[in-house]
Simulated scan of single mutants.
Amino acid sequence: MRRKKREGIEAITAYLWHSKRLFVILSDVYLQRIWTVFEMSAFLAAKTSNTRMGGNRSGRNLFDFQKEGGANVIVQPVALASLVPTCFVFQWVRALGDYARYNLTQWGRNGIDTDLIVALVFSVLALLQITSLVLILQRWGRTRANLKHQVETFSFNEAKCHHEPDRKQISLAVKYLAERSRLVSSEVSLQEAQEALEGHARQMVWPVMAGALSHAGIPFWDAWVIGVPVAAVALDDISVDIASGFGVNFVGLLARLVAVLNFPIVLALISISASTQSSCCWWMVGTILRVFFVTAFTSTRGWMNAQVEEYAKGQGIPRLGLLLSLVFLVQILVLWCSYGDGVKRMRRCIRRCCSRDS
């Protein structure tokens, strides 16, 4: 049994050596356990080693190699497991929110009736759902704030190991990997090999994970999935316009698109703002402010619908179209910086400009 287990441990290195993708289910303890960090370190060491041994003379690093499809690390945070279904439910019940908002605007005109009471109940439920959404993102933000520190302080000797006898086998596998990756020579001790691979992990693990999570801290594929029900709501609005005889024009479509992009933007802003540690008092204040801003952002859809209808009756369509186009361009820029590589490209441009000036 022990021999089979040792062979299995040794085979992990070979398995990772020939793998093209690594799927990381990121939890609070992922970067504190010896097995998971060894697997990720082995994968990254194998990719950079394969690049070097493949005749690399152009100074390419792991990021260039990954961009070309040689390595791919996919990170899915456990803390965000409930984010997508929560957003789905929130978007699908927005029709109830529209109903509540319309009836609340009639408050006091026709007295207190059943519709107003139902609208008030729906409003409270919507607020509770927004609060739960904010709390999910804040909890993930606090977890994400500790990730870099966990990478920088990781040690194979002090890492958690579920079965302590495995630690010796992993140490031997670490030495073999460090030698094959050309991080150390065959004459070094186990401790020196571990330290070499630890240094390599600190150098490579965090940048790769940060790149997989995006600047917003939310994987871009999660953002796409979240956007599906938002787009469905926009299609419902267009269907209502067609059925009511209002018609569909460029400005109306642009207004729907602007409303769709608001939701992933506000998620990114909450995630970024929650990625720092704070005291209990500031945490409560931040929660209240974030709930307020999410409510404000999600309410712009109804306001935009009303504006489009009002401007369509008058002569303000060109002016409204110009305003919505500017908002749309700003939204695209924010999304590019939050979920894409906009921040990295901007930093590169700034560095190039500074180097030219100097």
Rank of each mutant, 00 (worst) to 15 (best):
Q203M: 05
I270R: 04
S239C: 06
G55W: 03
I9E: 10
Q307H: 07
F90D: 10
S186K: 13
I25T: 01
E39W: 15
L257A: 04
W282T: 01
A255W: 06
L235S: 05
V230G: 09
G111I: 14
T153D: 07
I350Y: 07
Q191P: 00
S239L: 07
V208P: 04
L177D: 05
V266C: 10
W35H: 06
G340C: 09
W283C: 05
V174T: 08
V208L: 11
A173F: 13
T287E: 01
F88C: 03
V75T: 12
L253Q: 03
P219C: 00
T36D: 14
N72C: 14
E152L: 15
V233K: 00
V134Q: 06
V134F: 11
V93T: 14
V291A: 04
L125S: 11
L127R: 11
L322S: 03
S239T: 02
S244V: 02
G59C: 07
Q307P: 00
G141Q: 12
V230H: 04
T51D: 01
Y15T: 11
L133K: 08
S189G: 12
L128D: 10
L120G: 10
D236W: 03
V89R: 15
S275C: 09
K47S: 06
D98E: 14
I218R: 13
A11M: 15
W35D: 06
L213I: 00
L116E: 13
L16A: 01
N103V: 11
A193M: 04
F292W: 08
M304N: 02
W221I: 04
L326M: 13
E68F: 08
R256V: 01
H149I: 03
W17Y: 15
S189Y: 08
N50E: 11
S239H: 06
L135M: 11
